[in-house]
């Protein structure tokens, strides 16, 4: 099991003058599944983007640590798998081409075996050579899981992981969350009770809006 942790310290985020959250202190450890909960507009996506170092907080810090060593922000993409409805892959490429390009840009050898396994698990193997522009939104969501899990990152951030998915897709996602959560650090930001039921700890962002 990898020893991965994320330390959140005194996090504050404003959009303009509107406070999103403040004073968030938390420690996430590998081997657990954490939930990020809150109603629409509570800042769940903003929070996971800050944890992923995609946007900066106004105050506070996020520190990623792997086996006692701090991971620099510019290297984080090597350790992170991310799924969200606002993530888009390349429509002009096929499902497999997307995964090949992504692996090469990441600087890792494309693992065909792993790719085939994930595409089969998410019921996309038969459509792996079809262009993404012909995929439904649910199929694109499934492919994002293959994208996130391809290089077996120690940190998985799933923002609304089951959006656009049918029941079998949701079951598959829950299966993977449980599996990955045993050895890795998994963060799930969602409104869905079924998604949050998988989480051992839930961070309620509504509790960090004191100034509103």
């Amino acid at each position: 099991m990898t020893n991965y942790s994320v330390e959140i310290s005194s996090l504050v985020k404003y959009f303009g003058r509107r406070l999103i959250f403040e004073g968030v202190n938390y420690s996430f450890q590998s081997g657990h599944v954490y939930g990020i909960a809150g109603p629409n507009g509570s800042g769940k996506s903003t929070f996971v983007k800050i944890v992923s170092c995609l946007i900066s907080p106004n105050k506070g810090s996020v520190t990623h640590i792997l086996d006692g060593k701090k991971i620099e922000e510019e290297d984080l993409h090597n350790y992170l798998g991310f799924v969200s409805p606002y993530l888009f892959l390349y429509d002009e490429f096929t499902a497999e081409e997307n995964l090949v390009h992504i692996s090469k840009i990441k600087g890792v050898t494309f693992n065909k075996e792993r790719s085939d396994y994930l595409l089969s698990e998410f019921n996309l193997y038969e459509r792996r050579n079809d262009l993404l522009r012909g995929f439904s939104s649910g199929m694109k969501q499934r492919l994002k899981f293959a994208f996130a899990l391809l290089n077996e990152p120690p940190l998985l951030i799933l923002d609304e992981p089951t959006s656009n998915l049918d029941n079998s897709g949701k079951e598959k996602v829950y299966e993977f969350i449980k599996l990955e959560g045993k050895t890795k650090l998994v963060l799930v930001a969602s409104n869905e009770d079924a998604d949050l039921a998988l989480c051992e700890n839930v961070l309620e962002l509504q509790n960090y809006k004191n100034k509103l």
């Binding site: 993409h77 606002y86 892959l89 429509d91 840009i105 990441k106």
Partner: peptide
């Protein structure tokens, strides 16, 4: 425009993106 900026941010460092 295609919304793939986030994807790029998730797979490569800024220096790689600029050079590419």
């Amino acid at each position: 425009e295609r919304g793939t900026t986030l994807t790029l941010q998730l797979i490569a460092s800024p220096s790689t993106i600029f050079s590419g």
